[in-house]
Deep mutational scan, measured.
Amino acid sequence: MAAAAAAGAGPEMVRGQVFDVGPRYTNLSYIGEGAYGMVCSAYDNVNKVRVAIKKISPFEHQTYCQRTLREIKILLRFRHENIIGINDIIRAPTIEQMKDVYIVQDLMETDLYKLLKTQHLSNDHICYFLYQILRGLKYIHSANVLHRDLKPSNLLLNTTCDLKICDFGLARVADPDHDHTGFLTEYVATRWYRAPEIMLNSKGYTKSIDIWSVGCILAEMLSNRPIFPGKHYLDQLNHILGILGSPSQEDLNCIINLKARNYLLSLPHKNKVPWNRLFPNADSKALDLLDKMLTFNPHKRIEVEQALAHPYLEQYYDPSDEPIAEAPFKFDMELDDLPKEKLKELIFEETARFQPGYRS
């Protein structure tokens, strides 16, 4: 834990890192770190609560700039109880001085990944967590956004079992017609939660990839272990087919990539493993919904509104309290091709509203 900075004593240090967030945020305490930044909790002297502050230093890398800009653009436009918001952003007053960006968010005690390492969940908890994931996802999908990296560590939890989806750095506007060349190379989302079509096709992607990830998360809540822990690309596919069985001819016809289709045709026939054999203690309604989410063919996979209306979630289902976005989200430009200098300018502009004396 960093010592509390005395008023006016300059930035606090946390594990050798400068955290320049005073005077409003003090009493910093280390939480963890990701690929390009550290997260601390801090005391907000204005709202009198502890908050989470993520320090991001992305400006050396085009990919990190892209992810940072995506996350900020999306989260500043989203407003939903099951999606983490941005409360404040701290950065230098000029673009030349801006080396880091500090993002202030609600402090959540833990995440689903940490929880599943230590606790076996009751059916009631599984049901409530799944409902909140789908409630947040309904809003995301209504904005025409794909999260693309749903996994237990991106689901934040607090002691009252509130759940918030975080990390929109890989999110995209849904565009089933656009052929994202190089899709697989830039697709760094965790393999275990990846839909089979991501490994088999490169053309376009749809909201059904997020539903697949939610199915993987439900299976993990039922058993405290990942359902498809593939060691590499082909191993991942083999794990999936080992449980779902061989795809039907109709399902194979959806695979545009001939090499991928021929690979699947070359494999020995596998039978589907019954879900109640894998999860003998699970609620039968939970397994019915799991089956509809972990469907090989993305066109037959359940959609988020149908999933919310499934009998497993009937005690929570309330369409009048499951809000959607006001308007579909649009990125003005494809960020993939922009140089990091341009992305830095866009991050600077996007964060201006939090600067003292800002006038829109």
Rank of each mutant, 00 (worst) to 15 (best):
L278G: 06
Y233R: 07
R77H: 02
N224S: 04
A286V: 06
E250G: 09
Y113R: 14
L218R: 04
P247G: 01
K285Y: 09
A35S: 15
E186A: 07
D175G: 08
N224H: 07
Q119N: 12
D251F: 05
L134Y: 10
P226Y: 03
L313F: 10
N253C: 03
D337M: 03
P23T: 13
S208R: 11
P11Q: 14
F329R: 04
F19Q: 12
L184T: 06
E12L: 10
D177Y: 13
T160V: 11
Q66Y: 12
K285A: 07
N144V: 11
R225P: 03
K231D: 06
A9Y: 01
Y263S: 01
E341V: 13
V39M: 07
A189E: 12
N82I: 15
L184G: 07
A143V: 11
E303R: 04
I53N: 13
H120S: 03
N253K: 12
P176T: 15
V104F: 12
N45M: 10
G85Q: 12
A2S: 13
G34L: 04
L252Q: 14
G8L: 09
K138L: 09
P319N: 04
W192M: 09
S29Y: 01
A3N: 11
K342V: 07
N27D: 12
Q97S: 12
L258E: 01
R135A: 05
R172H: 02
Q105M: 14
G245T: 01
E322D: 12
C254I: 11
D210Y: 14
F19L: 15
L335A: 08
R148C: 05
I95E: 09
V18P: 01
G22A: 11
L155I: 09
E349L: 02
R135M: 08
F228D: 02
K231I: 07
A352V: 12
S248L: 08
L335G: 10
N47S: 13
A189H: 08
N158T: 11
A325H: 01
V188G: 13
Q132T: 04
V304F: 13
E12Q: 12
A9W: 01
L313M: 15
N87H: 09
L244T: 07
D283M: 02
Y187W: 03
Y233H: 15
E33P: 02
K207T: 13
A307D: 11
S142K: 07
L121T: 02
C127G: 09
L28C: 02
M13N: 12
L137K: 04
E197L: 07
Y128I: 05
N158C: 10
R67V: 14
D100A: 14
V104M: 01
T206L: 06
Y358L: 11
E186Y: 08
Y36I: 15
I211K: 11
K207G: 09
L121V: 04
E81W: 07
R194T: 06
I324K: 05
N276S: 00
I302Y: 07
I302H: 05
F348E: 12
S246V: 07
R135I: 02
I31K: 15
F59P: 15
G242P: 05
M199E: 04
H61Q: 14
E314F: 01
P268Y: 06
I31H: 15
A4S: 12
L308T: 05
R77L: 15
N154D: 00
P247N: 02
L294P: 06
G85E: 11
L241R: 00
K164N: 15
F183T: 03
D106E: 15
N271E: 10
Y312K: 02
E60P: 09
S153A: 05
Y139F: 14
T63M: 12
A7H: 11
I227V: 07
M333G: 06
K207N: 09
G357L: 11
D44I: 09
L156W: 00
P268A: 00
K231T: 09
A307N: 00
H147C: 04
I74C: 12
D288H: 02
T159W: 04
A282M: 05
M293E: 01
D235H: 11
I83L: 06
Q315A: 09
K164R: 12
L267G: 01
G182W: 15
A195D: 15
S41C: 12
A92Q: 00
L222H: 06
K340D: 05
G8A: 11
R135K: 10
P280K: 07
G37I: 07
P323H: 14
M13L: 15
R79W: 07
D20K: 03
A325Y: 01
Y263I: 07
C40Q: 14
